[in-house]
Amino acid sequence: MRVLDLSGPIYNGMWSYGAPLPYVRVEPIASLEKVGWSGHLLQLHTLAGTYLETADHLFPGRETIAEVSIDRFIKKAWVAQLTDKEKWEEITADELNRAVGADFKSGDALLIATGWDQFWGHEDFVQGCPFFLPEVMEWIVEKDVGLLGLDIPSVQDPRMDDNELNRLFFAKDRLLLAPLVGLRNVGKGPGTLIALPLPISGVCGTPCRAVYLDEVITK
Rank of each mutant, 00 (worst) to 15 (best):
V3D: 06
L4G: 07
S7R: 07
N12Q: 05
M14F: 05
Y17R: 07
A19L: 08
A19D: 09
P20Q: 03
V26F: 10
E27M: 15
P28E: 12
A30R: 15
L32Y: 15
L32K: 15
E33V: 09
G36H: 15
H45A: 12
L47M: 13
L47D: 11
A48F: 03
G49M: 03
T50G: 06
T50Y: 01
A55M: 01
D56Q: 03
H57I: 00
H57W: 06
P60I: 00
P60T: 04
G61V: 02
G61A: 05
G61W: 02
E67K: 00
E67P: 08
V68S: 01
S69H: 07
S69Q: 08
S69P: 15
R72K: 08
F73Y: 04
Q81L: 12
Q81P: 11
L82Y: 06
E89Q: 15
E90H: 05
A93S: 06
E95C: 13
A99G: 11
V100E: 08
F104G: 04
L111Q: 08
L111D: 11
I112F: 09
A113P: 12
Q118E: 12
F119P: 06
W120D: 05
H122R: 12
E123C: 13
D124N: 14
V126Y: 13
F131Y: 13
L133V: 07
P134K: 00
E135L: 00
E135H: 04
I140D: 01
D144K: 12
G146M: 02
G146I: 03
L148V: 10
L148C: 09
D151G: 10
P153T: 10
S154F: 10
V155L: 04
V155Y: 01
Q156A: 09
Q156S: 11
P158E: 06
L165H: 01
F170C: 02
L177S: 09
L177C: 10
A178F: 14
L180M: 11
G182V: 02
R184G: 07
V186R: 09
G189N: 05
G189A: 04
G189Y: 03
P190V: 03
L193Y: 09
L196C: 10
P199A: 05
P199D: 09
I200V: 15
S201N: 15
S201H: 14
G202M: 04
V203T: 11
C204T: 07
T206S: 14
C208A: 13
C208G: 12
A210E: 11
V211L: 05
Y212I: 02
L213M: 10
D214Q: 05
D214Y: 02
V216Y: 00
I217H: 01
T218N: 01
